[in-house]
Design a binder for these strands. Structure first.
Lengths: 272, 272
DNA sequence: CTTTAAATTTCGTATTACGAAACATTATTT
DNA sequence: AAATAATGTTTCGTAATACGAAATTTAAAG
């Protein structure tokens, strides 16, 4: 008896979701994405829940610090507990701690924005972002630590995808699709697979305005002590500064070098 | 009919806490404070909950990204959603954004650690921490963004307490007490009140190893556009470097100055 | 001072989450 | 490699929990 469809899949809705957890998550998302906080009325009408219910959940959340109530406006805002937890997880990702000095150096040297990401649920999650103090010239990238991006359309994502098995890639494509973000985005599965094998061979990836018009990036992988590609780093910037030539002549070399340095700091001994 | 004891008090346990929220909070705290993550067994035995229940809550939390499961060890860890939320709240505290450059400059100039805090539930919460790149000489402060401290025993706390009304101060003392952290901690309510009125008059506070042996700090307040003391900043360091003389001659002036600069950036027009 | 709107509390009820135990999977020992 | 132990996952009948309509209180606006 074999069951070829039995893929344990953490991203599909569990059969027995706890209702309260779902509602709490919805409330926190909602409140988090409002700049001025929200009233109970707002929340209850947006989510279609009775005011009483929302109030009960909010007071419980407030008691544990996940939500706080503005003294003046009476609006509910994210609580400071989330600051604490956000920093806790940072310290759990010791990857990030180790990489930090190298990334700073890279940002200084190249005068562009440096990102560090990991792959989670087939999406790219930014775990570090360093902007060169000078040189960014008022142009700031909209990215933010904790934010997510499709993997197929950015350099860091393509680097990490390039180490997946063919089977995993199929699951990825099936689950996430290959949404076209710009005219340059690779949307054909076959093309993507060819591209990824190239990326893997050459050890770096370029995002030539595939994710956002006007932004170009180069990325390289980071390996842990077991040689597993656990993370990727990139240099990103506006296309008029980050030209194809600059990438080939300078930036490519620098990301790869920094990637290798961080890998070594993690105990990576090199291939074979 | 008057009821003098009717103080709306957000920190006492609400009558109708949602059980699931409490359990979720316990689980997240537990998992967050473990460096290697925890198994279901660990969590259920620590909290005294049945495995099935813990499992159900964990899968729900994982679905929404608050918890993730390590692929290898199968242990549960904090999820990356918390990174995202931690960064969201940071951007909601635009106070912090505005202050950042000033604080960096202060840290550079003084070569010591600079903190920024707000008061929440009568406790000090660190919302920013900047370490001077050089000069810390291997000595790092254990503080962490999001962490909390009693208010009566640190400079930033005393600065903020100094603006409370007498009534609020009594509530604070009743609720939190004045725990003795070191031999220097002020533990007498009367002494504290006298001290605070002095702090308020002089516009800064010193923590002379009152919170931690070997650590001395100076702090100054930050006012918003309405003239309300919304935050406080401090310079902290080992007592052998941060001498009383250095504070009086140099540091005191610098924190006050930086505090005022930030206040002005927030729209503060000065007193009267 | 009156009116309106939102926030908070109450309370009987049905749904939801509970948790004991069965079952499955993974790790450990012999 | 087989057996055993230990942990993880699912099931399901039940009761406690959270629900939510409505009443009450509080705050804001006219």
């Amino acid at each position: 008896m074999f069951r070829n469809t039995k893929f344990k899949d953490k991203s599909t809705r569990p059969s027995n979701l706890v209702q309260t957890v779902e509602r709490v998550s919805q409330i926190i998302d909602l409140v988090g994405n409002s700049s001025q906080g929200m009233s109970i009325k707002d929340i209850s009408s947006t989510l279609g829940l009775p005011k009483g219910t929302v109030h009960r959940l909010l007071t419980s959340l407030a008691y544990f610090g996940y939500i706080r109530q503005d003294a003046k406006t009476k609006n509910y805002l994210l609580g400071l507990k989330l600051l604490e937890l956000g920093n806790l997880i940072t310290s759990q990702l010791d990857l990030r701690k180790i990489a930090e000095p190298y990334l700073k150096e890279l940002a200084e040297k190249t005068k562009e924005t440096v990102h560090m990401v990991i792959l989670d649920q087939y999406e790219v999650v930014y775990i570090e972002k360093i902007e060169s103090e000078i040189g960014t010239g008022g142009l700031k990238m909209a990215s933010r630590v904790g934010a997510r991006n499709p993997a197929h359309s950015c350099a860091v994502g393509k680097v990490l995808l390039s180490y997946l098995t063919d089977e995993e890639l199929d699951t990825f494509i099936e689950k996430k699709g290959l949404p076209q973000r710009t005219p340059n985005t690779i949307v054909s599965p076959i093309q993507l697979k060819e591209h990824l094998s190239m990326v893997r061979n050459q050890g770096y990836a370029i995002d030539d305005e595939e994710n956002e018009k006007g932004i170009r990036c180069v990325a390289a992988p980071i390996f842990d002590d077991k040689g597993r590609p656990v993370s990727a780093i990139s240099i990103s910037g506006p296309s008029f500064r980050v030209t194809k030539k600059l990438i080939q002549d300078v930036l490519k070399k620098e990301v790869i070098k920094t990637g290798l340095e961080i890998s070594k700091a993690l105990g990576f001994k090199g291939v074979t």
